[in-house]
Nucleic acid binder design. Structure first.
Lengths: 372, 372
DNA sequence: CTGTTAGCGCTTTCAC
DNA sequence: GTGAAAGCGCTAACAG
């Protein structure tokens, strides 16, 4: 496009400046003195080619700087090495790490990644799906917002892997975090320290992620025989500021709260600020825990006790599933894999100021989904 | 790929389960009762089509669920809506924000983004460039590691925008941060507070980014009449751990240091840890500043005084340059734009314990590159 | 304003 | 093991 303009003025019919058509497989064939079909076979490895000829072709390719045109290849072979990745917000380190894990594994498997952000909006998500269809990705990985995009992709035969959460009623492959387990464990950690009035700060419970965390929180309380107080489940929006205000309001209303569980990293940020602004000491005045471990959580003081979701591993697992699915080595049915989170205990949790009597936990607290 | 397998068993010759060939422009033409070329014109907007026919085509497209195959379109028209983005490590929030800014602007301009990470390795970078060439991206944005990838892209006529730093001797478009200016301002801030023994923690000075920061640091000292002490420029690797050790060693060696300037966010992380591990109070015992502002820097106490690079804006500017370049509205020559950083003063900086006599700054300290 | 023709660069039968 | 021929789905000439 741009280069062409140059051609006009400084046309020194020499090496550069000219639009210089890229070598095609025809050129390569000519250079290696064989037919295009043989060249194709030599490069792609499909079909028979004598070792001698293959070497010659490879050398010639290097020589003339031949790079196969994957557009043409895709058109003809009806496949592509592109995988679509549709995520909510790459600015959020959670998604960034997810994307990084995906890209890493996919790249090493010879695929490349088309990333589209949807900012959590269903329309943008559908638009992204349309793009994926247009460029004929061979699979898609999506952190779903609504079911529309996933449905659209699937109905066109594109294998999709849902990441982090599952949209109802769709039987695609998926890789999820065991939210119930993680939330239960970290809540139990608080319970074990003696907390009985534990608030959960959460932005949504419609997705499997939020629902699971809520369920885990409840399960831990139930297991400890602590009655559920609905007023301790604090709804908020998916933004630090909103979370900060929500926590502030909660503490005005319920000064008896001794521990706070933020359901994700953004809410944790807001909660952390709210506590600091109020001049509350953590963990002396209030214990704080969060779902989703980020670097800053170990940099602040006190370090925050969290549930580490192993996000990069989540991403790599998604990518692996995609690769297997494309290769056809996955069974026909949808496979769902769970990543087991682990809790990281730091300094933001301690026994409450006036400890309640520690409650014995029920022996059997198994409630999480069965792992893969 | 995957869907096909289903066809065998549960073959209810009905609506789904079958491979169901995607509608082509032929199908669309048939449905709208016109020729393929007219359908093409109606969709792409190139050439004349009566309003009546266009409406009919659009309706038919909606009706049969036609999505243009951009593979075929690209092959024929020798253009694509794909832009390659080649960055070092999307896990690093700096690059994540850069990518987010790029994606945002590009998406709204109708392009999609192919992201490849190179982990700072030149070979991986070249591999990424090869991918871009293969899929015929219409432009590329790269945070260059070596000159090879950029050179390769450019020699094939792909417009490239270098982001954040510039590789020597290549005249591509670029968007850079005014590193000299930012580093000078923040160093001067320390000087103004009375610091005279300011260490710079830096991982590289080969790229324009590191070189600029070093130059800004030096310019500020020079302007203040403070002699350069080479031992205060502390080299380290691009990792928090390495930075932590480097700071530790520095402070063993030079207890007289009163302020520390970390040249990027990773080094800042290491520096912050080192200071905490040593039990030093910031800013009472030592002031700390950093280049590149990240959320955690305002969450820790004390909040860290930083240079905000406006990374998302940097990304958007790169994308805009790409769009303009593709549209041909940019001049023939390479254009370089600078982003003006701003310094964010928080609580990690204060006068040194035993303040030196504040030094009057020279009146004219203009040394930065001239802005765009 | 619309239709016809040709061909982008590659892979894939199908002969040999 | 290799080559010849056909065509993926689309759009750019060119007629009409």
């Amino acid at each position: 496009m741009v280069g062409k303009r140059e051609g006009g003025g400084e046309g020194r019919a020499g090496t550069r400046a000219s639009p210089r058509r890229r070598p095609t497989i025809q050129d390569l064939a000519r250079a290696a003195d064989i037919s295009p079909s043989t060249a194709s076979r030599a490069l792609s490895g499909n079909g028979y080619v004598s070792a001698e000829v293959r070497a010659r072709v490879l050398a010639a390719a290097e020589e003339i700087g031949y790079v196969p045109d994957s557009i043409a290849r895709s058109l003809r072979s009806r496949t592509s090495r592109a995988v679509g990745v549709l995520i909510s917000d790459i600015r959020n380190p959670f998604y960034a790490n997810l994307a990084a894990g995906i890209e890493e594994r996919l790249r090493s498997a010879g695929y490349h990644v088309i990333v589209v952000n949807n900012d959590g909006e269903a329309d943008a998500e559908v638009e992204g799906a349309r793009t994926f269809l247009a460029v004929r990705v061979s699979a898609a990985i999506v952190t779903p917002v609504s079911d529309r995009a996933v449905r659209m992709l699937m109905s066109d035969g594109v294998p999709v892997v849902q990441a982090d959460r599952l949209v109802d009623g769709l039987s695609s492959d998926a890789v999820l975090v065991d939210n119930v387990q993680g939330a239960q464990e970290i809540t139990s950690h608080l319970v074990d320290l003696g907390h009985r009035t534990i608030a959960l700060l959460i932005d949504e419970t419609d997705w499997t992620s939020g629902a699971g965390r809520l369920a885990g929180y409840r399960a831990a309380l139930r297991a400890a025989g602590i009655p559920m107080d609905p007023a301790l489940v604090v709804p908020t929006r998916f933004q630090p500021d909103a979370a900060r205000e929500a926590v502030d309001a909660l503490l005005d209303r319920r000064p008896d709260v001794t521990a706070l569980f933020a359901a994700n990293n953004l809410l944790a940020e807001g909660a952390f600020q709210a506590l600091r602004l109020r001049g509350l000491r953590v963990p002396e005045d209030l214990s704080l825990v969060a779902f989703d471990d980020l670097p800053w959580m170990s940099m602040v003081s006190p370090g925050i006790t969290t549930v580490d979701q192993h996000t990069a591993e989540l991403g790599r697992t998604c990518a692996q599933l995609v690769v297997d699915r494309i290769a056809g080595s996955e069974s026909g049915e949808a496979t769902v894999r769970y990543i087991e989170p682990s809790i990281v205990i730091r300094s933001s949790t301690a026994a409450p100021r006036e400890p309640s009597v520690p409650v014995a936990r029920a022996a059997s607290t198994q409630v999480g989904p069965v792992t893969s």
